[in-house]
Design a protein around this nucleic acid. Structure first.
Lengths: 254, 254
DNA sequence: CTACATTGTGTCATAAAAACGCAATGAAAA
DNA sequence: TTTTCATTGCGTTTTTATGACACAATGTAG
């Protein structure tokens, strides 16, 4: 099938395959250059950026939809996604956007399930920036990381969805393996501290942070130090996953 | 319209009024006799208990749906509802239940939007037990409070939904006016402590609890004491709403 | 081989939390 | 009327956690 034919099929027959009125949007966080980032797609023709989102197969758990959608739209695979909120403002209609989109690719309007109201379920994920290679799908012009403090204009209520995800991330910090998911296997103490500072949006005392995080027992100090820094080389650490998961049940206390 | 005609209309024309595939379920908590309780409806014919739930008008925010549904099904009005999770297991089908229901009231099967898959959005609320008079609607046999540790068998995944709501309540305790919503205007210190103990599911030291809660400044001690207890009479307290809402922004720390 | 930015470890003062003591109270029992 | 008893209100002591800061150690750049 050609791209145009596929699209037309999606607009006029997609409701045979997908549930009406329900969609999923994913907020993907990464950490790189000591900055928290979010992964966005540039919607073709609309010109604005969007969260990777999609629709629900008729017999699919939303958790699985989120995984599939993320894979299809960005290439990211085997990512743990976490549902955080459902957005149901009746004005969050994709009708105008979708009609515009259809016109742009040469179709006249008509009736489509895609013009109807959608309630969107928000999922978020934390990924190891260095391990993933995002690839835009064919209805997007680009797929890029943005610093969370410098997100561009987004379609619909995607900015609101993104902000809720960020807020939720703060609440999760003490109860989910946020550090493990966002950092590489091994990392330095300043890197971990910067991650906490970014998510909590406040400065922490370097020495007190070290004492507190080490007292939880979730870290193992490695023999290896970071090379190529023009000052005292910091040690690498890794997570003790067993102690980490135990500690998370009670909460870390940051 | 007669009851039967209304029902038939709902089954075979409801989709013209409501969104397909989406529903709302409400978990209503109350506190009475030093016990946390949940409000359930007894589904007619099914014999099992259920959370008060319902459907979404085509142009309605889910927050408003939840309010409307709660009002219609239990009589509770002006209740602050809080969305906590969306349940999307593809097996959570109401098809069998609804077909049984139709047969029981004398209709043969057929095709109905009510037989299709539903994704349900969970809302929870905290109400002053003494202030509300729950009234069952006409598709329920009863509307009753149950102790959270003694909930009866429920339809579908309603037990799971209820348990998620209870779990969520624990997280809210430090950031939402849980005490204010669940207790009467005035209350004693042991009552407040019991509420915290029930929600947190652990014993607290009476003296340390008093000191900690008073140090937050959210309570005002009244002159009045509780009458008719065969031991030292405890004082009544009320919330200082301004200080309470300020303190909640930073979290109470329980 | 010195300068420099940064790390690793430690100390001290203070605040918060946990554990416990005891007199006061008010209805019920004697 | 007096005593009993469960419970409240207010306190103390001990332990633990937090915040603020000092200083030596280290790896590269100049």
């Amino acid at each position: 099938m050609t791209f145009e034919k596929e699209l037309k099929d999606h607009y006029f027959h997609g409701h045979e395959k997908y549930l009406r009125h329900i969609s999923v949007d994913c907020v993907i966080f990464g950490f790189h250059d000591n900055e928290l980032k979010v992964l966005l797609l540039k919607a073709k023709y609309a010109g604005k950026w969007a969260l990777p989102g999609g629709f629900i197969l008729k017999d699919e758990h939303l958790d699985d939809s989120a995984k599939r959608i993320l894979k299809d739209r960005t290439g990211l695979d085997k990512i743990y996604l976490h549902q955080f909120y459902t957005f149901s403002d009746p004005n969050r209609s994709t009708k105008k956007i979708n009609q515009q989109f259809l016109r742009n690719i040469g179709f006249k309007g008509g009736k489509s399930w895609m013009f109807e109201r959608f309630v969107s379920v928000g999922y978020s994920a934390l990924v190891d920036f260095t391990k993933v290679k995002p690839i835009a799908d064919n209805i997007s012009d680009a797929c890029e990381w943005f610093k969370v403090n410098e997100v561009p204009e987004m379609i619909l209520d995607h900015r609101h969805i993104f902000e809720m995800a960020l807020k939720n991330l703060r609440l999760q910090l003490n109860f989910q393996p946020v550090g493990f998911n966002l950092l590489s296997k091994k990392f330095t103490m300043p890197e971990l501290q910067k991650l906490y500072e970014t998510i909590l949006n406040k400065k922490l005392d370097r020495r007190n942070f070290q004492r507190k995080i080490m007292s939880t027992g979730i870290l193992v100090k490695l023999k290896e130090t970071k090379k190529g820094v023009s000052h005292k080389a910091p040690f690498y650490y890794k997570f003790d996953l067993i102690k980490y998961s135990k500690a998370l049940k009670a909460g870390l206390g940051f």
